[in-house]
């Protein structure tokens, strides 16, 4: 028994030492690749605690999260709960914006059964396909992603064999082989839009990364797990013609008393000249996302 304990103690002491020494060693020996590997491993571990798309939770769960946190945030959450009923969290794996958009959009189609919207977006998707082709992308590198998204779109509409229930939508959104493909579809669409209108996006991108539009797309848009910024949101919203509302939950406050939660509507730039009738029917975003620095979740209005 005693021996065993001694061994244990020794073992512990040794492991402490070895950790220390290995820490010293590692500073010298760690290559970029090792650091990246380690970083991504931590990332994966953390991210797997949350499903790609979570369950719908009452907004009070958000409040509970900040119980002992900043009073400004608590105040803002109170303001939010005046207008919003629930939140659906997404995994913080760098794809959260696209994933939130995916679920929110498909859920909207499933619930509204809006066939005109489906037809409209299909036309836009077709245009995105053309854009990628004209940019020189090889068809087979993106067509699977396009096909999978269109499939999901089709099955969100009821009345055909492939129709799915809301539960099934949740299951699919958590299934990597579907969820990641749809996310990648959005990444292709976003990248294509940015490259097509590179003159428009260039100043934004220069401000963000100091690199070229092409580099930005290759390093910050197309690879999975790269976080989204305003540029991504504008491009996706424009390309698909879907307006998006983002509420910002941060610690900013204004002096004029009364806290409010800032929001921004990303309204797709219409390429055609807005005629009187078109201008009058300004779209109210049916996709609402909650932004907290570094992360997007889905919000449900009351």
């Amino acid at each position: 028994m005693q021996n065993q304990e001694n061994l244990d103690a020794d073992g512990k002491a040794e492991s402490v030492i070895s950790i220390q020494t290995s820490e010293y060693d590692s500073w010298g020996n760690l290559g970029d690749d090792d650091i990246m590997l380690q970083k991504s491993a931590i990332f994966v571990q953390e991210a797997e605690k949350v499903p790609f798309v979570g369950d719908k939770e009452p907004l009070s769960s958000l409040e509970a999260e900040y119980k002992s946190g900043s009073p400004i945030l608590l105040e803002k959450i109170k303001v939010l709960s005046g207008q919003y009923a629930a939140i659906r969290r997404t995994r913080g794996d760098g794809n959260c914006f696209f994933r939130s958009f995916m679920f929110s959009y498909l859920e909207h189609i499933l619930e509204s059964q809006d066939k005109t919207e489906v037809d409209r977006i299909k036309t836009n998707v077709e245009n995105c396909r053309k854009t990628l082709r004209s940019l020189g992308y090889t068809e087979f590198t993106f067509e699977d992603f396009f096909a999978l998204f269109l499939e999901q779109l089709e099955s969100a509409l009821q009345g055909n064999e492939s129709s799915i229930s809301h539960e099934e939508l949740v299951i699919r959104s958590r299934d990597q082989s579907i969820s990641d493909y749809v996310v990648m579809f959005f990444r292709f669409v976003t990248s294509g839009e940015i490259q097509k209108r590179s003159e428009f996006f260039e100043p934004f991108i220069m401000g963000l990364t100091n690199g070229t539009v092409d580099q930005f797309c290759k390093t910050a848009v197309e690879p999975m797990g790269e976080e989204s910024d305003h540029v991504h949101i504008i491009a996706l919203s424009d390309a698909l013609g879907v307006p998006i509302r983002v509420l910002y939950l941060d610690r900013s406050s204004c002096d004029s008393g009364g806290l409010s939660v800032n929001h921004h509507d990303f309204v797709p730039a219409t390429t055609e000249v807005a005629s009187g009738s078109a201008a009058s029917e300004i779209k109210i975003p049916f996709i609402t996302l909650l932004y907290r620095p570094g992360h997007y979740d889905i919000l449900y209005p009351k």
Partner: peptide, 16 residues
């Protein structure tokens, strides 16, 4: 293939 130490290129699905 991503040996370039300064800018480790990310693999992307549009490659083949």
């Amino acid at each position: 293939l991503s040996i370039s130490n300064h800018h480790p290129e990310h693999w992307q699905p549009s490659w083949s």
